[in-house]
Simulated scan of single mutants.
Amino acid sequence: MPPFTVTNDLRYTLAMPTPLSRRTLLASTLTLPLAAQTAAPRREPLRIVSLTPFDPDEVKQLQAASAVPLEIEVVKRAELRAKLPETEVLYGDVPGKELDFAPKLKWIQTGAAGVEWMDEEFRKSPVPVTNMARVFAPGIAETGMGLLLALTRRIGTDYARQTMRREWKTIGTVRSADHIELAGRTMAVIGLGGIGYEVARRAHFGFDMRVIATDARPMPRPHFVAELRDPSWFPEIVKQADVVVAAAPHTPQTNRMFNEPVFRSMKKTAYFIALSRGGLIDDMALVRALKEGWIAGAGLDVFPQEPIPSNHPIWDCQNVVITPHTSGWGEERQRRLVAFFAENIRRYTRALPLLNVVDKQAGY
């Protein structure tokens, strides 16, 4: 029996019928230079420098995964440059300008799914980066559906405000459109990666919704997605949807993609759910869309400015539900994160391809 159990954890993490996601499969052949992939398993001890502390039990799990003695050294960011000359593996991130101080750096495991921190200088470097894509997706997807229900059933808007006022007051009538059922309605998922996949799966199987989607990478269409196309379909897909979910990574191509023309093109009865990155949103266009009735409402776990300033007009909108970028939080998330890092340590110390290698030019 291996020193730690990872297979089932990873299958649950990816929440797919097969152990590996499409991005994992794509990445597994691109992880390390060919020489490293064909090298013999490591023999010398490994020290990983981490910008994030791990609990003692988590450290033991990481050490058990390694084929060689492993030390985790936690440092503050201000101390990182002094450690870089001898750092082989980093858990965290580092700007490109610091790479001159890190001649031995061979691998960065980031603790997040997004990699916006990569600047142009770093993108040009040969240092591979692996991310936490899909690790946080289950909680984020559940939050997304919760935000949607809070809007369609008015739980997080009118009834939440009434609860604070100790009021019992119905909205609309038994036959009016003030309360919306999701079954049979169309959800457009923009970005069918980890988050988008899990939202789409829940929407279809849990709520009988018709799901359509876009994604930048060629992939087989999941059987629960009615139609999947490349991002050029974006201007048209948003017009068809009753719910639009922002689940794409933040890149130069997706920056502020949800802007005034997009919100104006959506159905007036449609809902907007933002789950991946706030940089996808033109916040003032969203405020106008909510206040002027271009769309019915918005559920936001991410926003261009975080934390949102107390004087931002988004707080004045009556048809918005906001969570403070906590959709990926939870005990289960942390267990999956540590299990995933452990699996990559196991692979690294055995000269095997790593999982979730980032395409640095694409930005995800």
Rank of each mutant, 00 (worst) to 15 (best):
F101I: 02
A102V: 10
P103M: 13
P103E: 15
K106Q: 15
W107D: 09
W107M: 12
I108H: 12
A113H: 03
A113K: 03
G114A: 08
W117H: 09
E120F: 09
F122T: 11
K124P: 06
P126R: 08
V129Y: 11
T130N: 13
R134D: 15
G139K: 03
G139A: 13
A141F: 01
E142D: 15
T143Y: 11
G144L: 03
G144S: 04
L148H: 12
L149M: 14
T152F: 10
R153V: 09
R154N: 14
T157I: 13
D158K: 11
D158P: 00
M164K: 15
R165Y: 03
R166V: 13
T170N: 04
T173L: 09
D178L: 01
L182K: 10
A183E: 14
R185C: 07
M187S: 02
M187F: 00
A188H: 03
V189D: 00
I190D: 10
L192V: 08
E198F: 01
V199F: 00
A203L: 06
A203W: 01
A203G: 12
H204G: 00
H204N: 15
F205T: 10
G206D: 02
G206V: 02
R210H: 10
M219T: 09
P220V: 10
P222L: 01
V225C: 00
A226I: 03
E227F: 00
D230H: 13
